[in-house]
Write a protein that binds this DNA or RNA. Structure first.
Lengths: 347, 347
DNA sequence: GTTAGCACTCTTCGATTTTGAGTGCTAACA
DNA sequence: TGTTAGCACTCAAAATCGAAGAGTGCTAAC
């Protein structure tokens, strides 16, 4: 971690100025620029000396001799942690409207991804909410036709799952009713961890001749309750990466886009994000810090949102390391609170 | 359409040779190459004369003077329609295994997309099957808790939909049973078109005090039965386009990748494909022929697959115009029949 | 400690040249 | 009459060259 002894105030100011201008221009920044556009009133030569020190300390690097300096990962990290001041951001009415319209959760989340992408000019992702400790709320079996039973399973947060179960011979209405009763009274409010072998054995016993149906049902329940399976991830603005030359060479572009298409890696990012419990729920990964290998030349900002009932989802922004962190963090926070409002208005 | 008078056999042979070598190399092909690598035994000068004719007829074009020739869209079209001979293709055991493993439909389709992408080196898409004339098979209402009813709707092909309906006061078990009976006897086997206002009015009347629940339920049914809503599209190998220089400049790449991310355009492609009833179910769009604007510099090959019950889905391959049509068509046909087998084995 | 000045390094950009593939045309040939 | 050798010509792509310019590091003076 950065000690204060390492950098005096002047060095900090210079570093700040370097990073800020680099975020805007994307070009290496030289000593002359800093000397002119800050209120330090130092000559370029002095700046050069300081820059030389900063480079030695690892906060900035030179792409090649006789080029200006650009921030290193360590420099960015310092910037995000200490230097950056967050500016107030006005509400954008148009976005507001876009979000209002979305009626269903799924559409809403897609919309969120899109709004965020157009608003920030980075690539974005939004995961559907999942529940790490999900509880059973309701089970119902019904005969669809002679050979098939449909099991409707409602989890906390009104997540609905269905499974079709095939049986040799139809169950009578009466038996079905009994079975439903049995299942509901026994399993209601239970989480997946609580449904153990002993319980299953007991259930089967009570079900008598229908024990094999119980087995199938419990399999279905266990299957349905697995969260990863049905976490969806929506992405938007992937092609925004082409706006940043440092990411749009074939090699990088290919890696990043692959990660966005094969959702596997994003899933990884989401689970990792959700597992870390931070106070604000917002995390910044710079370069190598990211859990997604394919994005090691990017910065990734994630936020978690909550629905109550323990349901949590993740929003992510992926862009170049010279990302406009102030803007992004601000947008994230706004979205977070907006989603919060929406979901809590609904209930 | 191409008349036979326009091209004698020698011209056809030369055109064939040009296209074939261009498909392999991706570079404009000159007269010398053709004269050397065919059994025509003609000098390059003669070939040049013929090529000049072929250009005048619009089958090939010259990117610039003093370059070789490349096929025009018209040339490709002739090739696909007449010239191409499909070579036999050996079964690939590894793919076979990959496909076998997938247990659920969703996974299977994702797998199909992936296999096809790695096998062909093009970008691929697979749509989940939808039913253009879907019928209601089963409806069941249940109380989840005091204020919420869950409606489970099963459509032909065992497609299951759920809707949650809020009510002011709970329905008694008895009433629920009646309502279920009423709904099932009335609506069973009906398609969306058959559920008209008269029927709805009659239903509401019979339901008595629960008429407003009926209204909500029917809304839910209508909503659930809409096909577009829940057609999913899986893509794979989008980044394969970077393998073809003619598609990997920023402009094109961005357009194509956007189309793959925002599924809107692909949905368009699917509906268009499904609406055209061809004998083999395989279609080839070359360049401007494609329904997807963003892919006008590509060739698109689509195939439809069937599940019975009128459920149909689409597989698509998107690549450069100089696509290996033989290989692609062969792969498509194989996949088609393989999927057919699988789905009919299951039932 | 700060700064002016200067030599030096590298990239970038444009202009120019070179190279090589490929054509079209003409004249000769079978 | 169709085929071919030969040659002049064209043009894109690659290589070469020479500023121009941005920026640095170092030294010496303030």
């Amino acid at each position: 971690m950065v000690s204060e002894h390492e950098l005096n105030e002047r060095k900090l100011k210079i570093l700040h100025a370097i990073i800020k201008t680099y975020l805007e221009t994307g070009e290496p920044v030289g000593s002359r620029t800093i000397s002119k556009y800050t209120d330090l009133n130092l000559s370029s030569a002095t700046i050069r000396n300081e820059m030389s020190d900063l480079e030695e300390l690892g906060y900035i690097v030179q792409p090649h001799t006789s080029a200006g300096r650009i921030p290193s990962d360590k420099g960015y990290r310092l910037y995000v942690d200490m230097l950056m001041e967050e500016k107030e951001q006005e509400l954008n009415v148009r976005e507001e409207q876009m979000l209002e319209k979305a009626d269903k959760m799924e559409k809403l989340l897609k919309q969120v991804a899109r709004v965020l992408a157009t608003n920030t000019n980075y690539a974005t992702m939004v995961s559907t909410p999942v529940n790490s400790a999900n509880k059973l709320k309701f089970i119902q079996l019904s005969m669809v036709d002679e050979e098939q039973i449909i099991a409707v399973i409602v989890l906390g947060g009104n997540v609905i799952k269905n499974r079709i179960i095939s049986v040799e011979e139809p169950l009578s209405n009466e038996n079905l009713l009994k079975l439903n009763m049995l299942l509901n009274t026994t399993l209601n409010g239970m989480s997946i961890e609580e449904i153990n072998l002993g319980l299953i054995a007991r259930l089967k016993e009570q079900a008598g001749i229908h024990s094999e149906v119980i087995g199938s049902v419990l399999d279905a329940v266990a299957d349905a309750i697995q969260l990863e399976e049905d976490m969806q991830i929506y992405t938007s603005g992937t092609t925004n990466i082409f706006k940043y030359p440092e990411l749009s060479d074939k090699q990088s572009a290919q890696e990043i886009i692959s990660a966005f298409e094969e959702k596997q890696q994003l899933t990884e990012l989401v689970t990792q994000t959700l597992s870390k419990e931070e106070n604000t729920g917002i995390q910044v990964y710079i370069g190598d810090e990211t859990p997604v290998q394919n994005m090691k030349d990017c910065s990734v900002v994630t936020a978690t949102y909550e629905l109550g009932d323990g349901m949590k989802g993740t929003i992510g922004i992926i862009g170049p390391k010279r990302m406009d962190y102030e803007h992004v963090l601000k947008s994230m926070k706004r979205l977070q609170s907006e989603l919060d409002q929406m979901f809590h208005k609904k209930e």
